[in-house]
Amino acid sequence: MSVIELDGLRKSYGDVTALRGVDLTVERGEVFGFLGPNGAGKSTTINIMLDFASPTAGGVRVLGEDPQSDSVPVRRRTGSLLEGYGVYGGLTAREHLRHAIETRGADDDPDELIARVDLEGAAGRRAGGFSKGMKQRLALAVALVDEPDLLVLDEPSTGLDPNGARMLRRIVRAERDRGATVFFSSHILEQVEAVADEVGILYDGEIVAEDSVEGLRRELGAGSTLVVELTGPPDRLSGLEDLAGVRDVTFRDGRLEASCDDADAKLRVLNELSAAGLLGEFDVREASLGEVFSKYTTDDDVVTDA
């Protein structure tokens, strides 16, 4: 079942077009990485999903509801940590959580949630004096109240230190394991790569790619590369490129490099080399999603679905 469905979503502010027809589907139970450079339209998309803004055209359904007309049912099942989140300076962290728990009619323990985001020391302090990272942690704790079916995290690692980033990844995985769907927006690839099952890349108001992390690597020939030191000249080798899942075989300086879609493909190459008596030292070079990302999101080399 689809948790988020965006269909030709468009948004304009006067002459400025922020979204140019975004189509996107997020399935239940997956962690969806919503990647894109600053200004691509990620927050605009999220604001429309949660009825902070209305679309100029196109359809949006979240958890089966239209958030524009039925925002409360959507919000009841959604926890959100949005970019630019502000706290109530006069309220303590615990009071923020109590208020959220009361409003949701939940029975969570505020201190348990505060402990989950490692904010125990500040539970009784007024949030007005919190650092950016502490506010992010508080917002995350608020988002977790009442075990939401959907977690929407917009640039959630902003202001978090490395420990905070690890805590965030831990929570995202735990929430997914619980059965929640996580919509994780970021311009930081490593954050998304570490947790996402599926990735959509938004560039200049359009989805330019949507696939699994591995799928995106494959699509651009950016799968992992097997590098093998050959023990002799490669004259006796042929047909390596015909092996399933193997592409772009090159020989240089006594070394073979082969782009492989998966582990089986690598094994097939190694078996061939072994049979030919040429197998020496070998190594695997993983292409980062970063290469994929920059390939999609630089102006001179934009690949689109269309």
Partner: peptide, 12 residues
């Protein structure tokens, strides 16, 4: 930015 808190909860 606290409107994100206010309307992040099930308030219309």
């Amino acid at each position: 930015g606290s409107v994100r808190f206010l309307l992040g909860l099930p308030n219309s």
